[in-house]
Amino acid sequence: MSSGSMGRSGVMASSMSAVIRDDMGRHRLSGNRLAAMAGVSQNYMAKRLRDDAPLTLDDVEVISAALDVPVLALFNESAQLAEKRRVVIIRDTN
């Protein structure tokens, strides 16, 4: 990744945001509330949840605490989803 401004999220980051959005729904937690719990602006969090910018490891750590979900659980679920998405992408290009 270049050292310039961050672009849209890749497969793993977008899978992570999908898992986080799903967990937010289960916890009935709004983006505004999650942003406040993470100590970031609503705009910052919204960009990451929309995949307009990738999540950082620090973001994931704080979000996992807010959702009361182990970091490793978020990564495992995200990795599984990312692998499914990669298979779809590969099939679509063949």
Rank of each mutant, 00 (worst) to 15 (best):
I20T: 03
I90V: 11
A38K: 04
R33Q: 12
V40L: 02
M12G: 07
R21A: 06
V40A: 07
L55M: 12
V69N: 13
R86L: 15
V69D: 12
D51I: 03
V62T: 13
R33H: 11
L72M: 11
S15F: 07
M6N: 12
L74I: 05
A36G: 07
I90W: 03
I63K: 03
R33T: 07
A35P: 02
V71M: 09
S15L: 05
P70N: 13
M6W: 01
S41N: 06
G25T: 05
F75L: 14
R91F: 00
N32Q: 15
R26D: 10
R85D: 13
G7F: 13
D52M: 08
V88S: 11
S78M: 02
S3H: 04
D59R: 02
Q80K: 13
T56K: 08
R91C: 02
S17M: 03
S9G: 11
S5G: 14
D23K: 03
A66L: 06
G25L: 06
S30Q: 05
N76H: 05
G39R: 14
R50L: 04
S64E: 11
N76W: 09
A38N: 09
P54C: 12
M24D: 03
S14P: 15
E61A: 10
T56E: 08
M6C: 15
L81G: 08
V87L: 10
V60I: 09
M37H: 07
I20G: 02
R85T: 15
D92P: 01
V71R: 09
N76K: 09
D22L: 13
G10F: 14
P70E: 10
I63C: 04
